[in-house]
Computed example of a mutant assay.
Amino acid sequence: MRTLAAKLTGCAKYYCRRNPVRNAQPRSFSSFKARDEVSLEQEADRKIGWLLKLLFAGTATAVAYNIMPYMGDNLLQQSVSLLQVKDPLFKRMGASRLAQFAIDDDRRMKIVEMGGAQELVNMLGAAKDDRTRKEALKALSALSHSDQAVGALHQAGAISVIRAAPDSLENAEIEKYKSGLLQRFQDLRYDIPSADVSSS
């Protein structure tokens, strides 16, 4: 009996010694958590702008994909206007819309008449990343299926801008679009040396 009582007393003393340490853990964890929450909030503030842009871009792209073949002049003009925005994300959205819209000669010339050809050339010349270059070249390639549109692109100075656009080792589509566009200019006998086509 005494042995059992001694054991119980020892256990109680051990529990009392350990209990304050266990009670201190939540306070330590709580202060650590508070510091983490501040840094997480700061990081969230920095990223929220890009998150909203991506959400808007995804929604707009999904809607545009369904209505693009039927869109009117107002939506087409809005797409051309997006090419004038400084943000590359909106430039890419505008170029992507125009590429989807340019499905026949009449629509391609409509884009040219609204200034889309010149704006795409400007976009390509000012592009600082491969994704923006690719979208500009893709839209220019869609326009180039019309002989008249190719003439408008030539007048907009497209040949020199396309030749000056850097190739990308990571994005083979850039080189494909460049080569196809330069070949198209050559086929229509615009002033472009054949060496430039083969080197692209």
Rank of each mutant, 00 (worst) to 15 (best):
L8H: 08
T9S: 04
G10H: 13
G10T: 03
C11H: 01
A12K: 06
Y14E: 14
C16T: 11
R17N: 02
R18C: 06
N19C: 15
V21G: 02
V21S: 03
S31N: 12
R35A: 07
D36A: 11
V38W: 07
S39A: 11
E41N: 10
Q42L: 15
Q42F: 09
R46Q: 06
I48C: 01
W50V: 08
L51N: 05
L55A: 10
G58P: 02
T59W: 14
V63M: 07
A64L: 10
N66L: 07
N66F: 06
M68F: 03
M71S: 07
M71H: 08
G72S: 15
N74L: 12
L75A: 15
Q78S: 03
S79Q: 08
S81A: 10
S81Q: 10
L82Y: 08
K86A: 14
K86W: 10
D87W: 05
F90W: 15
A95N: 04
S96Y: 02
A102G: 05
D104I: 14
D106E: 15
L120F: 08
N122V: 04
R133V: 00
E135Q: 14
E135H: 13
A139Y: 00
G151K: 12
H154R: 07
A156Y: 08
I159P: 00
S160I: 14
I162W: 09
A164E: 08
P166F: 13
D167C: 09
L169A: 03
I174W: 01
Y177T: 06
L181W: 05
L181N: 10
Q183W: 04
R184P: 14
F185T: 03
Q186D: 13
Q186W: 09
D187T: 09
L188G: 12
I192Q: 01
P193R: 04
S194W: 06
D196I: 01
